[in-house]
Amino acid sequence: MALIELENIYKTYGEDEYTTVALKGVDLTVDNGEFISIMGPSGSGKSTLLNIIGCMDVPTKGVYRLDGVNVTTLRDKELSRIRNQKISFVFQHFALMHHFTVFENVALPLWKRELSKKEIKEKVDHYLEKLGIAHLKKKNVSKLSGGQKQRVAIARAMVAETDIVLADEPTGALDQENGARLMELFCQMNEEGKCIIVITHDEKVASYTKRIVRIVDGQIHSDTKGERQ
């Protein structure tokens, strides 16, 4: 059974003459442990696709099955549970809580789970250590550099221990060196069994992935599988 199954997905915004069709009958299947990049020019619909895969948005038409469950009919409460337990996100602008410490930001997905304070602390400490940012634990994230912030975002994605990690232009706000480090981290996570889906328009970023899906005008233009470069 595929991890992600999208069947004939449509997404439209607005009404009547102001309608914009962002996705036009997208079919996509992703298995466990895949490392995919979704590429396309601006306005092609790649972010809309990521929003739907990440249960942040629902399709106007079509069926989306996640782990065999049709999520298109689920309510907000169930969708939030899926976002908490099955999917982690890494965004171009990090999506961190500015007035919170590194520890608190990384612990964010664990607050919804039935874990003791001690368990949360152990998990967070483990991943902060792994990413080499344990010394920043008590620092407010607004005081960090871009590279450090992205590591915090990665730590938050890792601590959730979800099957899927979705990344939307994750290297967009980083310099070349930090961007490369980030992609190495993704490779490492993928080797540990995570399914990573990266939205990018950067060929260099896409070269780290094993499958490249190209979208043009809301439709899948090509879907190429191959070895990582």
């Binding site: 990440g54 907000d76 939030s80 549970r81 976002r83 996100f89 961190l96 964010l108 997905p109």
Partner: peptide, 8 residues
């Protein structure tokens, strides 16, 4: 951010 990490 909270909703992305699981808050309903």
């Amino acid at each position: 951010v909270m909703m992305v990490t699981g808050a309903s």
